[in-house]
Design a protein around this nucleic acid. Structure first.
Lengths: 336, 336
DNA sequence: AAGATTCTCCAAAACGTTTTGGGAGTCAAG
DNA sequence: CTTGACTCCCAAAACGTTTTGGAGAATCTT
C-alpha cells in the first residue's frame, strides 16, 4: 500500500531519515524516531520485500529440495521438522520455500535454477545419497547449505544426521544377547546414505558375533517395501527369528507379513524413526530414534551459521540413536 | 554471476535488446535473438529474481500457512500434496513458501506479514476453521487465495474440499443397512470445518434412521485422540457395534482401544483419508477418500486462476467421497 | 570568538530488471 | 523526391529500498 516515499512525504521528512528511523539508527533523534514509528504503525507500513532484497543482495529465502519419487521424501513427520525449521528461519527474516523435483528434471537442475537465479541464500537437502550430485554442485558454487544425512563426499559439508551405524549395531547386538542367532535386516535403498549406514551397522554386529549376513532384503522405504522384503526373508529355508528394519514404515509393512505367515507373534522386530503410529500397531512397535529435541530448530541454526560463513567442520551434528522399548522386539524365542 | 549489463556489453548490444531477445519479443531480429540466446546459455545467465520481482511488482511466491499445533497440520501425506502443488506452481514461475505460525502469534499476524510486505502473490490456507479469521482478512485485502476446506464465510471464496457430509452419511447408512443400530462417531475438533462437516453427516444419517446421536466423542485428530475417544465410547453402558472415525489416524488409535477392550475383532470401524498405513493395520482399515487425482495440481491450478482474476464462484471444487473397502468395517455383528 | 565536535538530517547512487517511447535506417508506394 | 510503413535497435525511466558521503546547525573547547 504505502511505501517509504509516501510515508516520508506525509511526515515532511526525507526517505533516508524515515528508513533509518525505522531501522533504529542512532543518527536520527529519539523524538523523530518515535514520530516515524508511530506514523508507520498507523498506516501499517511494511517495507517492500522485493526492493529490500534487491538492494541488500539477499534473497531472504532458503529452499529445500523434495524428491518427487513418492514416499522417498521422508518419514511422515518430516513436515513437522520443516515447519519447525521454517519457523526459526522466519525469526531471522528468512522464508523456506519447498522445491520439488518435477519428473524429467534432475535435482541438479532445480539447485541450479535456485542458485544461479539468486533466488536463495542457502539450501537444505534431505535424503542424501551416498554420492550426492546436489552436494557436489553446491560445494562447487560455494553457496551455503545443510544436509539432512551425511554423504561420502570428500569435502566436509554441514549436516545433521543420526548415528545409524551405531544404532543398528546396538539393536542387533541386543537381539544377539537375547539369544537370537538368525537376525534379519530389512534394508532401504542402498543409494541413500541413511539406508546404507543402517545396513552397515547390522552387518558389523552380525560379523562381530560370527553370524552370516545373508538374511538381508532390500525394498522401498515404505510399508509396501517392508512387506515384500519381509515375505522374501520368511521364505528362506531357515527363517529369521528377529528383524531389524531400516524404517518404521517398513517395519509396519513387515508386521503384516508376519501376521500373514505365522500369526504375528513369533518373530521379534524393531524399526527406526519412532513414528507416533508405532505405539498403535499390534504389537506396539519397538523402534529407535535420533536423540535431540527440536530438530527443525537445529537445521535453522546450522543454516544461519552457514550463511554467516562458519566453516563446514563446525556445522556437523551426529546424534546418538536411542532405543524405544515397546513390545515388538520381545517376542518369545523358540528353539531353532 | 553475470547480469544483463555485462551480457549486453559482451555482445555489443543494449540492455534493452538483450532483455527483449531473451523474452522472445518480435522486435529483435531472429539472428540477434539467436546470438543473444547462445551467449546467455554459454555464460549460464539467469535473470536476478529480486530485480525482476521488484520491476514486475510480483513476488513470484505463494505462501501456505501451517498451524504450529502439533498434529493439526494435516494428514501425513499432506506434504505430498504440497509438493505436487509446488511443482505445478513452479511451472508457472511461482515458488511455494511454507509459513508456520510461531507460538504466540496468530495466523492473522502471519498473513498480514506476507500480504502487507508484498511477499506473496497469493496464499494457500489449510485446515480451515468454520469461522476462519485468515479468510476474512484475505478477503478484506483482496488478495487471491485458495483454501483446503470450506468455511462458513458468507462471501464465497475459492476452495477444494471433500464432501464429508455425504461421505460420512453414506458410511453410517452402510453400517445401518448391515444391521448396526449403535453406531458411534469419533469426531475431530469441531472448530475445524472438516470435522464438523463429517460429524453432521453421521448425525444426519442417525436421525434419518431414527437412532440416538449420543454415541459421539471428540478428540485431537491424531492416534492418541482417537484412542481416548474410543475408550470413552466403550465405557458407555451399551457399547457401539460400529465406529465412524473422522480420520484414519484417529481410527488407528481407536483400533488399539478395541484391542485392549475386547480383543479387537468385535467392533466394525471405518476411517477417512486412505493413509497407506491403513492397508497394514490389523485388521486392515476400511476408509474413505476424496475422489480426484493430483490434488496438488488442482490447488496450483486454482491458485493461478485466482491470481488471474477469475471470480471465486468458479473456483470451488467439492469432491465426492469414495469408500475404500478393506476389512475393518465388516466385523461380525453380535445380537445386541 | 574561532575552531572542533556532535547531532540531525538529506540528496543521490545503487541494486538488476522490464517497459516506454522513440530513433535511425530500409523499402515500397505515390 | 517525398511519404509512410516497417524493421531493428536503444536511452532512460521506473520499481522501492538501503547506504554513502556529506551539509547545516547546535554545542562544546580553548
Amino acid at each position: 500500500m504505502t511505501n517509504l516515499k509516501q510515508l516520508a512525504e506525509s511526515l515532511g521528512l526525507s526517505i533516508t531519515t524515515v528508513s533509518r528511523a525505522l531501522d533504529g539508527y542512532a543518527d536520527v533523534s529519539a523524538a523523530t524516531r518515535e514520530r516515524v514509528r508511530e506514523a508507520a504503525d498507523k498506516v501499517g507500513y511494511r517495507p517492500n520485500a522485493s526492493a529490500r532484497r534487491l538492494r541488500r543482495q539477499r534473497a531472504e529465502l532458503v529452499a529445500v529440495t523434495l524428491p518427487s519419487d513418492p514416499g522417498h521424501i521422508g518419514p511422515p513427520h518430516f513436515l513437522d521438522m520443516l515447519s519447525g525449521c521454517a519457523e526459526h528461519l522466519a525469526a531471522a527474516g528468512l522464508n523456506l520455500v519447498i522445491a520439488p523435483v518435477p519428473r524429467g528434471e534432475s535435482e541438479l537442475d532445480i539447485c541450479r535454477r535456485f542458485v544461479d537465479g539468486r533466488r536463495v541464500d542457502a539450501m537444505l537437502l534431505v535424503r542424501t545419497k551416498r554420492k550426492d550430485e546436489r552436494v557436489e554442485f553446491l560445494q562447487s558454487r560455494g553457496i551455503p547449505f545443510v544436509t539432512n544425512g551425511r554423504t561420502e563426499s570428500l569435502m566436509p559439508h554441514p549436516y545433521i544426521d543420526g548415528d545409524g551405524f551405531a544404532g543398528f549395531r546396538a539393536a542387533t547386538l541386543r537381539f544377539h544377547a537375547a539369544g537370537h542367532r538368525r537376525i534379519g535386516h530389512i534394508a532401504g535403498p542402498q543409494e541413500y546414505y541413511f539406508a546404507h549406514d543402517r545396513c552397515r551397522g547390522w552387518r558389523a554386529a552380525m560379523e562381530e558375533c560370527g553370524l552370516a549376513t545373508d538374511l538381508c532384503a532390500e525394498g522401498a522405504p515404505l510399508e509396501q517395501g517392508g512387506y515384500l522384503a519381509a515375505l522374501e526373508l520368511l521364505r528362506q529355508p531357515s527363517r529369521p527369528t528377529a528383524l531389524v528394519c531400516a524404517t518404521d514404515e517398513m517395519a509396519i509393512g513387515a508386521l503384516r507379513a508376519l501376521r500373514e505367515i505365522d500369526g504375528g507373534n513369533q518373530i521379534s522386530i524393531v524399526g527406526h524413526d519412532d513414528l507416533p503410529m508405532g505405539a498403535f500397531t499390534s504389537p506396539p512397535l519397538s523402534t529407535m530414534r535420533m536423540t535431540g529435541e527440536h530438530l527443525g530448530a537445529s537445521f535453522a541454526s546450522l543454516l544461519l551459521r552457514a550463511i554467516g560463513g562458519e566453516p563446514a567442520e563446525e556445522l556437523q551434528e551426529l546424534h546418538a540413536i536411542e532405543f524405544v522399548d515397546r513390545d515388538s522386539h520381545r517376542r518369545p524365542l523358540r528353539a531353532a
